[in-house]
Design a protein around this nucleic acid. Sequence first.
DNA 1: CCGGATCCGTAACGATACTG
DNA 2: CAGTATCGTTACGGATCCGG
Lengths: 209, 209
Amino acid sequence: MARALDILGDRWTLLVIRELLLGPKRFKDLLAMLTAMGTNRLSERLSMLVDNGIIRATELPAPTAAPAYELTELGEQLRKPLIALGMWGLSMPVDDRIDPSTARAELIALCLTGVCDPAASADLREVVEFQVGEEAFHIRFDNGEVLARSGPSVEPADVQAQCDMDTFMALALQEISASGAVREGRVTLLRGGQRAFARAFKALEYSTP
Amino acid sequence: MARALDILGDRWTLLVIRELLLGPKRFKDLLAMLTAMGTNRLSERLSMLVDNGIIRATELPAPTAAPAYELTELGEQLRKPLIALGMWGLSMPVDDRIDPSTARAELIALCLTGVCDPAASADLREVVEFQVGEEAFHIRFDNGEVLARSGPSVEPADVQAQCDMDTFMALALQEISASGAVREGRVTLLRGGQRAFARAFKALEYSTP
DNA sequence: CCGGATCCGTAACGATACTG
DNA sequence: CAGTATCGTTACGGATCCGG
């Protein structure tokens, strides 16, 4: 534990890794998510993480071809522990619910992918793209694997959904049903049907929060 | 995750909680384990953790009756995430193996209790006391529950074992067998038999490191 | 513009001396 | 024993500047 904290214990380090759990990111994108972090600090953390084999420099796919950072296999292994920590933070009784104005739907989605039952999506293979407020992200179900990523999907999405933060949080907390939210117009489906959309949230359900 | 790190992200905080996962501890005991931590810093962290409902002030059992700190239910819920982080640190390829001179057997035991299969100790009910170098600790098996704690057990132990750090690490990593270690004299049993001792390590075995 | 590196004032830290 | 007070040093956030 001390060894892990020697590397991950500095301020921002775990938050940088959190961002990269949502897929490869550019320097400026990380900076945009981690407000109040200085450019020098970010650069310092990134090179330290590279030196320790937790992330590596890479390039964004095809048309963009911009430099970026991504997790290595070692870094990827932090997914479970970090999501577990996130769930603990979620259960903290500070304000009962996270402030919707500072919340980020893609991070909520990330948590869901970490706590949902893989068996529930064992025979599911679809990509759902979300637009929640300003943020765009997608969730890929691939026969038991569930992955949340920032930005639109590279392969064409089966479902494209649009809603506001409050609706997304209510969906994530299972306070409202997916099909009900569509019927009531709280969710707009730009592509795909209500059935496919509901299937996705069914697969994301967790048992014991 | 950010909420969790707001509370737990400062230096030493997670290490203080790690110590308390091994049972209630006094101020001076925490200080002794956390070398290089200033008394003011420890005091600061402790009161912050109390304010956030993660630990609480208490008293050591019966004869000692000294002030101490222990985890609340909220703090106890950090066990799984923290041990997961510890296991990640263990898999870090810095030096393959932790330096036996700085390692602490009770922390290794703590990790084992977090990753072993509860089913393996479902019908086991015994207390094993260890003396490894200077440190004394015990592991309590109670029908599926497995708990590692610093110091001797309050209830009389079924097994009392003595060995050096290298032997304990080899046992934990399943490099040698428990009964073999006893036969070869690497482990001295002050109380209890080889069978009971071997049962304990059998129950502590993990499947995928 | 993007990815950094440099500089500076402030906050946090480690060590030690001190107190109820 | 369980902290509090003080002090010199380190790490941080913010702003500015530079090379591609």
